[in-house]
């Protein structure tokens, strides 16, 4: 489905600040995998996701999506097959456009855009149905500017937009990290619901170990730009936070820096 092959990415290459963010990373994502990705700061989680999305073009290695080599494809072209939700709730929606206009833009992802009306009457009915599924009452506010919504509402909308056209891969980059705990929980439940309903192939970066264990069928831990742990099935289901910490210690011979890794 999605394959990373010996992907290498340096930042500030050739300067004294050179950092090896991703080190010959291999990862094979199977169809309908829901992978949670953890790792401490600087482990390369977001960089890996950016290499998949095309925001970053790797220095070496290949990115293959459904047998297409997309390594050098620009971000907008890959977006045809990839749905994304960002950490910042303001990044995924256009504030000065209305809810229905944002959804209409999402509905044309990967398709030609022409001179037809952006939002038609049938679209509105469709949008109302989809918004109802969110349970936030947004179905009655189609004409409202998205800038008027709260961070949680915007993130829910972004999730809906990312899956409006079924993506081959859904990338979630710490998409609940900037929300208050209650809203984060809502968005998480919504994520689970959407992913299950559409059987989406999903990669979710998180800083929360409990979340990483609770969600998905597969867990990947990154450290210094490499995959150091890849568990699925029974091995993942029976995992506890203590196990994770011990595994990390056993593999690396050092304690996991918990600077931003939440244990709770």
């Amino acid at each position: 489905m999605l394959v990373l092959e010996k992907v290498v990415k340096y930042f500030n290459k050739g300067t004294i600040n050179e950092v090896l963010a991703i080190n010959k990373l291999d990862l094979i994502v199977e169809r309908a995998d829901f992978i949670t990705i953890i790792g401490s700061n600087g482990a390369g989680k977001s960089t890996m996701l950016s290499c998949m999305a095309g925001t970053i073009i790797p220095d070496a290695g290949r990115v293959v999506l459904s047998d297409r080599d997309v390594t050098t494809w620009p971000e907008w072209k890959r977006a045809r097959y990839i749905g994304r939700v960002f950490q910042d709730p303001l990044k995924g929606t256009s504030a000065s456009l209305s809810i229905e206009e944002n959804l209409a833009l999402a509905m044309r992802r990967g398709k030609m855009r022409g001179f037809a009306a952006g939002v038609s009457r049938q679209d509105r009915d469709h949008f109302r149905d989809r918004l109802k599924e969110l349970g936030l009452g947004l179905e009655n506010r189609l004409k409202d500017q998205v800038g008027l919504l709260s961070g949680g509402q915007r993130q829910a909308l972004t999730l809906l937009m990312a899956t409006m056209v079924k993506p081959e891969v859904l990338l979630l980059d710490e998409h609940t990290a900037a929300l208050d705990p209650k809203t984060a929980q809502q968005i998480l439940e919504l994520t689970q619901q959407v992913v299950e309903a559409q059987k989406l192939t999903t990669l979710m970066v998180t800083h929360n170990m409990r979340q990483a264990i609770a969600l998905g069928n597969r867990l990947v831990m990154l450290h210094q730009g490499e995959v150091i742990l890849d568990l699925e099935g029974e091995a993942k289901r029976s995992l506890t936070v203590d196990d994770l910490l011990q595994q990390f210690y056993a593999i690396r011979g050092e304690t996991l820096s918990s600077d931003r890794l939440l244990l709770g």
Partner: peptide, 23 residues
Amino acid sequence: NTELGQAMRATGDNPQMITAQGV
């Protein structure tokens, strides 16, 4: 208010978002 026009407005407003929508 066309598909293209909306994409143009979103480009000025939030380039990251509209890129993720394939524009």
